[in-house]
Nucleic acid binder design. Sequence first.
DNA 1: AAGACGGAGGTTTTT
DNA 2: CCTCCGTCTT
Length: 655
Amino acid sequence: MPTSDILENLTDAQHEAVVHMDGPMLVVAGAGSGKTRVVTRRIAHLISKGVWPSQILAMTFTNKAAREMKERIGELTGAEPPRWVGTFHSACAKLLRRDLDKLSDDSRTGSFTIYDSGDQKSILKLCLKEFGVDTKSLSPAQAQTAISKAKVAMIDPDEYMPSAYFSSLRLDEVYAAYERRLREFNAVDFDDLLLLVVRLLESRPDVRDMYHGRFRHLLIDEYQDTNRIQYRLMKLLGGPAHNVHVTGDPDQSIYSWRGAEYRNIMEFTEDFPDARVVRLEQNYRSTQTILDVANELIEYNFDRISKELFTENPIGCPVGVIELPNGRHEALWVANRVQELYMDRKRLSDMAVFYRTNAQSRALEDAFIDAAIPYQVLGGLRFYERKEIKDMLAQLRIMVNPRDTISLERVVGSKPVGVGAKTFAKILDRAAANDLSPLELLQREDFSSLYGGRGGGKKVVGFADWCRGLAELPLDSVGDCVAEAVSYSGLVSLFESQGRSDPLSESRIDNLGALVDRAYEFARQRPDADLRLFLEEMALVADVDAHDPETDAVSLMTLHSSKGLEFPFVFIVGLESGLLPHRNSCETQEQLEEERRLLYVGLTRAKEEAVLLHVQVRSQWGRDDYTSPSPFLAELPEEGVERLDLSGGGAFDDW
DNA sequence: AAGACGGAGGTTTTT
DNA sequence: CCTCCGTCTT
């Protein structure tokens, strides 16, 4: 391996971080300071020094980050990247598939299903009903938020004290029931993936020692975004050698709403007094002007370690702050500017538009469509969130996990089998009485003699037959398996028959086809993997719309998903009170500071040009609201900022 | 059991 | 504005 390449073109600080071998290290890496470069080169360096790739565990927050890391390591080493480079959640899932059975007091097996937030809400609906809680006073979504908060803080149901607001609603019992249901269905939620690994490692020293022996080096990216479980995980996996290498930037902590405790990064040196600390403060990305403006903005945060990023890049042009009459004008202005840049021979893939909420993408998309500008939206509705895909995945899930009754219910609802809520409830009761899962009951019970083939019974018989046939489907090859399952589901012919009345049917059929394609592609990449792993991939990494920097299109995304990316030209829209900072995040100083960091993250994505836009009238839910500019705009310096008031119209009147 | 209709509400951000 | 839920009807 060409070790020389790995150590080439590094500053002293970067070099120190790259060649660090054993012991804890914290890399405080400002925006655009070459953090990814440091992490990937360090991994390549470790390997060049004889560390086996399989001894390295590197965890990121997003699939995007993991993918990029793998690619760059592959380029550096010219070999397959280490297998244990992935998100926290996928690494934990992988570990649990192997070893969950070793956790006592838990009836779940390695074939568990991973529930997304929709599935969680379905269970919670059951639980709320069970306790007669009125969903108007406590919605499944609220319960989910509250329970997830508790889980992330590692508070078990028996220790849980509902906040005063929920105290009358037996939320603690709902929480306990929710946990029981997950076990019953052999399912885990996103939080469990991490939580169960912590429980496993804490309760089984032998398992813990096994992993200590296995993972000699632990790397954690975006450490400022770790929550309490992830922190605990870091301590547990770090092993006696404390070969823990964490990187992050407190100024880019934007996930406290899901339990991230950015104090973790501030306190790393207290946890590991012998930790080496490296600061990367030179920015290689942005112009001096952009960086100065961003620095000035973030200075307004009280709770931070002072840090001044500098750059040797050119001064560049001023940051634009533009006021327009309404959202339509805003979108048109951006589209227009994009066209100007394009005429100036700039590439569309070098441009990005950021917004606070996904809902804002729509107006921009309309304008881009009208102007025939190619664009790609990141995030938004993901592939696996489409109804027909979820229906199909539900069927695949019950094929590998017969206890997954939430998915069974979905299967029942997705097809015109003639089994309604009442019949299904009967099946549930009967299953419980026989100590079987409902699917097992359906597959084993002789419904024809039970009902004597009368009336409604006939339909159950038909569905039971279908369930039995399900068990006959081949499970060996993932591609064939999914293809067979799709055809067995009857969904395609159902949509075909609906085709005349429903214009969506065609795209639904296409999507099911795409699912089959993905299964074959998955099988090609991972010949040894089974259906379980395919479903895991669909639950954890199903962002097919992932950002593709090769595509010649403008990128649209939330400020949150912009983290880690960079673009020569950046537009940030909706800089208004209520949107940024968002109206739901203005209560406390901490929330407000996080909103400011969000803008900071967006600004520091820009390499050459950044434009911030705000409007006087923002339409939301068909309602027009007068807005005031974001207070953050007033915090930007005079110098390096060019303010333009186009609210008087003129630019795009009569559009 | 399934389709139509009416009302309420509306995740900010993601694994 | 749109979507999701629940209820009412057939």
